[in-house]
Nucleic acid binder design. Sequence first.
DNA 1: GAGCACTGC
Length: 682
Amino acid sequence: MKTRKPLPKKQNNALSPVSSPSVASSKQIALQEQRSKLPIAKGKDALIREFQEHDVTVLLGETGSGKTTQIPQYLLESGIARGGMIAVTQPRKVAATSLAIRVAAEQNVTLGTSVGYSVRFDERFSSETRIKYMTDGMIVRELMSDPLLSKYSVVIVDEAHERSLRTDLLIANLKTIQRQRNGFRDVKGKGKDKADAPNPLKIIIMSATLDAEKFGQFFSGAKILYVQGRQHPVKIYHSSQGQIDYVDAAMRTFYQIHTDYPPGDVLIFLPGQEDIESLERTIEMYAKQLPQDSLSVLICPMYAAQAAGQNSKVFLPAPPKTRKCILATNIAETSITIPGVKYVIDTGKCKEKRYLARNTGGGLDTLLTRDITQSSAMQRAGRAGREGSGHCFRLYTENAFKAMPLSAEPEIMRCSLSSSLLQLKCIGQDLEKLELMDQPAEESMKSSLIVLFLLGALNREKEITTVGRQMASFPLEPVYGRAIIASKDYDCTHEVLDIVSVLSASSKLFVESFEQRDAVSEARKKFRHVCGDHLTILNVVKAYQEIAQSEGKSNRKEWCRRHFLNERALLEASDIRDQLRQTCQRLGIDHSVSCGDKEDPIIFSLGHGLAMNIALLQPDGTYKQTIGQSIVKIHPSSALCDKKTPAIIYDELVYTNQIYARGVSRIPKSFIITLGALKQQS
DNA sequence: GAGCACTGC
């Protein structure tokens, strides 16, 4: 069995056949009873028949139907999966692992035997594994080594309505794979006969109820099935008029609930950290004026950039005579379920990151507050009905709700395509030719092709180059893969890996807190490097490694806290770095080569990757891109803000109020000329 | 001198 990380002991106890058989069997009986009570259990036989008859099934199930845990077991028990594996894909890692744990328990097997999972940095499966929960990113990677996914006889795509980039790529590939594996005859009778197919593939798409037809249409002839969920009723109230100040409206609604409604926790959805912090202040201010005999208020802010452990009180039951008030971003909509919530206040707003491609190559991200979608509003309301009936207060009118788009635009329409384009090139596919549910804009496609060409990943004929293949083998944005490859020539792979792994970690390195902003900037000065943010990151990594070597775990934590560093980001970066070192080894790049105290080699390596992200200082103090025409400002959080550095490279452009360059480093002008000369040659 | 939803390899 492959096991990279042992599970926490508590979970192991719950899974492995327990020493006392009577305990195990009573647990097992309880589990089986729960299984049989799930709404989906009634339809088991009918479902199995449908799966047998149809190659593609679209299953619409509300939350709580048990479809994600039960269907794979039905497929296994009924023999539909034959000798192959059943893959169940998830957009998020936690979902994949916790589902596997649950299903292993229901099957009464040890996790990693017949039921397993596979997510980045953590896997538990073996040659025996028949049901494998995995992230969609994982199975898309598997496509690169096994383009027909021949190990799997059934692929179940869960949460397909979320339309993540990887889900969309997977669905597109599944359609072509099925044609090849199952055999088909077109209208002219050409193609293979079904009977000849030795290893057919079944596809099951699972989605929330909205816009289901689309999946059915994409897989022409797919059978659409509905499963009832088990959700408690949620009473929904709309505002009679639109709210201009939703933070103020949320505060007033909260106190209305607090004084007029029975106990039960309140969950308030807000777009971002700034609003969360401001609402926290106003709620706290009025909490002091509450009458003596009323419930007290415990505020729990929750957003992704929080330091680890900061939000743990969210999951504990409210103390006696206290009402919990959770102020959350979208993190509470899909990623995290908070127990005890009876009331939801929905501002109707969220922040959306959207990539604007430029036909000069590259582009910029916008991060703006916008109205949510209808499906998101329903999801938010549903958070009040997890444990009993609940109430949802919408701070917008019913007409405003009806005017909202049904569901979010698929991610593929609003992100950079460079990485996917390159991955597909590796298996001889073209993103332009792939039959997708939604085709990205031509401009976005073109922009990514230019980026990949400028990075040397594609030649003029749009064919993948040797460098392109190397770049694709790194689990990174192509830009940083390119920087690592360049680092070989500048003898600084060690340093570049340190920096790039922090940049690609999903958690932020620096903890931001509005209240302690002065202390934060003071602590940050210690690591600041004159060359800019990339070398500042390197300083942090080096300092942390020194602490990690000499100090115990609790001191490490304390050190991070004192310096407003997010240890989770550093730990994640260290996992990524290990993975990148392995990739380097495969490609014959010595990852231990270091440039010592020299800075230029590091900057030059990064410069090869960030060649499209260069800007020059203008007389008025702003910067102008060398590719593209935008005027950009250095983000105030940067080490180089106000430093009047003549030429800079940057990780990304983000438009909020202005176009900001983030992750900025000084680069010698002479290097830009060299880079230009190199481009001429190619 | 100002602010950052969420995933994934």
